[in-house]
């Protein structure tokens, strides 16, 4: 062992646990609005992730116990569960998690080596392969009690008398998009519906607030940089604002976009995933900003209203390039005396 002979006791596990803790406010609000189904999804994802990770580590001849305790698989599972429909079929979340852990993470070399955000890969696979199931978002005011929710998740059987439409609905973003395509209503009309609550949907806005709180905690703990989240939100707003000003009847206001969907979750927990984000300060700004822009573009002009995953994955591809082109100048290569 060579110098330095001392080191900070921080470990990867500690970081991951703190991130998990930071997810709690959002999670609690989410459960409050959408019911126990969220927790079922969470448990399913966590279990699947741990099993898949353990199996893959074993196959790769790595110490299973040691790597399971870095909690990175748990974090992936949580992020995925928070992005999936709360009353989705059990196999949906299992398939998505398997894909995230086995293909997007372990096959690329495990922790630290995956170019794509595993949770987002899992989500993208689910939404592309099972669009119908993914469209059945839980209704914020879910009329089912706990056992009925469980039964629905595992058996897809609704209790007699419960209408499917009452139980599940499209996400606010999806609904908005469909209605706009039908052309019957303008954006302000649609947003005025009770589904949309104050800003971006009953519950959704509060959940977003929960994520914001968790994100600020992480930033305060110096576990995430300020550049990526801020740039992502700015990127989103930067496209949303002019378009909204240009035609408020067809384009939703920026606040709606910031609060809707998984924007906040992505801004503080997805694009800040260090493994798949740039490491340079400028690179983080560029990456975040472009994720924001792409999120809006795909959301409004593309085929998938829940577009954060695609925006993130597209930008993941560009990370090595961004890193390469945004290398900060080293000590002495700038400022006073640097040119000498």
């Amino acid at each position: 062992m060579h110098s330095p002979h001392i080191a900070k006791p921080t470990t990867v596990s500690v970081i991951m646990l703190k991130v998990l803790a930071a997810l709690l406010p959002g999670l609690i609000v989410y459960v409050h609005f959408y019911g126990i189904g969220v927790l079922v999804q969470l448990a399913l994802a966590t279990g699947t992730a741990l099993l898949a990770e353990a199996a893959m580590l074993k196959l790769r001849g790595l110490p299973v116990d040691f790597f399971l305790r870095d909690y990175s698989a748990v974090l992936t599972a949580w992020l995925l569960a928070l992005a999936m429909p709360p009353l989705g079929a059990w196999w949906l979340i299992v398939v998505a998690t398997l894909f995230a852990i086995v293909i997007a993470k372990q096959l690329y070399g495990g922790l630290g080596n995956n170019p794509f955000n595993p949770a987002m890969v899992g989500f993208a696979v689910a939404i592309v392969a099972f669009p119908a199931q993914m469209a059945q978002w839980g209704s914020p005011t879910v009329p089912l009690h706990e056992l009925e929710q469980l039964a629905y998740i595992f058996t897809r059987q609704l209790p007699p008398g419960a209408a499917l439409d009452a139980v599940v609905s499209a996400t606010p973003l999806d609904f908005l998009k469909t209605q706009l395509l039908l052309g019957d209503h303008s954006v302000p009309e649609l947003l005025a519906r009770p589904l949309y609550g104050h800003v971006a949907g009953i519950g959704g806005e509060w959940i977003a607030l929960g994520y914001l709180v968790g994100g600020l905690f992480l930033w305060k703990q110096r576990l995430i940089p300020w550049q990526t989240p801020l740039a992502m939100l700015a990127g989103l707003a930067a496209v949303a604002t002019p378009l909204w000003l240009y035609d408020p009847l067809h384009f939703a206001n920026p606040l709606f976009h910031l609060a809707a969907g998984a924007t906040m979750l992505a801004a503080f927990f997805i694009v800040t995933d260090p493994v798949t984000a740039p490491t340079t300060p400028r690179g983080r700004l560029i990456f975040g900003f472009l994720v924001g822009v792409l999120t809006y573009v795909i959301r409004v002009f593309g085929g998938f209203p829940d577009s954060v995953a695609f925006a993130v994955l597209i930008m993941n591809i560009a990370v090595p390039f961004i890193d390469h082109t945004t290398q900060p100048p080293v000590f002495g290569a700038k400022r006073k005396g640097g040119s000498a």
């Binding site: 080191a7 470990t11 990867v12 970081i15 040691f66 870095d70 990175s72 630290g112 080596n113 940089p225």
Partner: peptide
């Protein structure tokens, strides 16, 4: 030192 983990590019 505790056993090393892979770099997670935390910066």
């Amino acid at each position: 030192r505790p056993p090393a983990m892979p770099c997670i590019r935390c910066g």
